[in-house]
């Protein structure tokens, strides 16, 4: 019952984030929507793991969380500097890849 409620909540949130990504007036709305969507994907995978009785997919969900974070950082950095660090103020910084 809990899992059902949680799934519905996550799906509704996904739909709302999708609406923001489609409508969003500024770029930052869309970036935030994608980040949100990644988080919801993590939660969906966790929930799928629980109602198929295979919660070992949780580590996959964790890795998604990390990738999502790095991806968002990279996209935002891109919007700030126009490239991935080559022309930024810290030339030695590494980027995601």
């Amino acid at each position: 019952m809990m899992v059902v409620g949680a799934s519905i909540a996550v799906l509704v949130t996904m739909a709302m984030a999708m609406a923001r990504a489609l409508l969003g007036p500024t770029v930052y709305d869309r970036v935030l929507a994608v980040n949100m969507f990644g988080t919801k994907t993590v939660l969906t995978i966790a929930l799928i793991g629980f109602f198929t009785g295979r919660p070992e997919f949780l580590d996959l969900a964790l890795a998604y969380g990390l990738l999502n974070f790095i991806g968002t950082i990279a996209v935002l950095k891109f919007f700030q500097f126009g490239s991935l660090g080559a022309s930024g103020p810290h030339p030695g910084e590494t980027e995601s890849g």
Partner: peptide, 21 residues
């Protein structure tokens, strides 16, 4: 096109969830 790129990211996340299913 920036919005399109963002939507393609969402598309990837969704298809990844479907692959897990």
């Amino acid at each position: 096109l920036v919005a399109v790129v963002m939507l393609m990211g969402i598309y990837s996340f969704l298809s990844a969830a479907l692959f897990v299913v």
